[in-house]
Write a protein that binds this DNA or RNA. Structure first.
Lengths: 183, 183
DNA sequence: TATGACATGTAATCTGTTACATGATTAG
DNA sequence: CTAATCATGTAACAGATTACATGTCATA
């Protein structure tokens, strides 16, 4: 039953577990110590998420004992878990992803090279660029319309969003050239 | 009972209602038609949110009838609603806001000028710049560490986040100078 | 008179937050 | 011995998503 929709916290866990098996506590520490602070490090989110993934057959937890250590459950990806992770990464980026789910795109891209390989990374970048270009254009047009009617702070806030997306587009092109240079 | 915490959708609604009274349907259209697409335009989110705000005494809905129109409930801010909106906007930006709640900061800023005045807008920008500067610095250091150990896609994904924050910092300075020039 | 847009809502389900609970191990 | 930290969880609750339900009005 891989059919049920998985939230991005679930994919973040799968991606981390693909790199190395880990316990819930390890994963929490990764979230709170690195730039993945955007994901919750609360036990009430992570432990239920792990057991959901286990119920879906995407990870398997094994209790590590002996050697005087405290009880510690280490999770590993199952073959289905790897398959699910791969297909999540390999789907092309849509405009709706860009508008509402940017963090998830970046997460997919971050894991892409290790999980599916450099060609998949390039594919993500190219579909991101393709979705982003017309979106930035439409934002520029809306900015023009807004300038005459909104107060300064409203116009500036919109400009921040526009600049952020322009910046992302530049980054995508930079990243594409980095991958093409490496070939 | 203004004490209960209000989610950002609630504040988005309060901010829009401060500009002009509107019905739930009007508000939905604003979310789906403008760059506020990040907020849900689904009735299952907006109508319950409006009735929560009404229960808390922050908005008041009045049914508009007569003139052959269909039933339409128009919401307006109450004095408490205005007070709640003002104090939400006027709180200084923390580092945690920058890391996990950027969209909410931009929302506060967008409404700030109309609701509290230009001096409050400047305050938000200055506290944003103050919180952002050390954060960007720490991201640059983490980027250095990462470069040697992570695969290219991981490094690049991190770089995207870094660039986004650098871009935001530039914008904040640009916005500050725009406000100071206008005085 | 039937279709579609207007306008409002409800119900089921899922996820995340907050706060609490538990027990083992290590440092002082 | 006791306080802190390691490690794992649970329970209550709030909010969002999805899908459905309802009724009105305009128009073809």
């Amino acid at each position: 039953m891989t059919s049920r929709k998985i939230p991005s916290l679930g994919y973040a866990l799968l991606g981390l577990l693909h790199q190395t098996p880990a316990s819930g506590y390890d994963l929490r520490k990764i979230f709170s110590a690195t730039s993945m602070k955007t994901y919750s490090d609360s036990p009430g989110a992570i432990y239920p998420a792990l057991s959901r993934l286990e119920k879906q057959g995407l990870v398997r937890g094994t209790v590590e004992e002996g050697s005087g250590l405290r009880r510690r459950q280490v999770f590993r990806l199952t073959p289905q878990g790897i398959a699910e992770l791969k297909q999540w990464i390999a789907v092309a980026v849509t405009r709706d992803d860009v508008v509402r789910r940017l963090p998830e795109i970046m997460l997919r891209f971050a894991f892409s090279e290790q999980v599916v390989g450099a060609s998949a990374s390039l594919e993500i970048l190219k579909s991101l660029e393709a979705a982003l270009k017309p979106y930035v254009q439409s934002l520029r047009e809306e900015a023009q319309r807004l300038k005459s009617i909104a107060p300064l702070s409203g116009t500036l806030a919109f400009e921040a969003g526009l600049r952020g997306n322009e910046c992302l587009l530049q980054w995508a092109r930079f990243a594409i050239s980095a991958y093409e240079k490496r070939k």
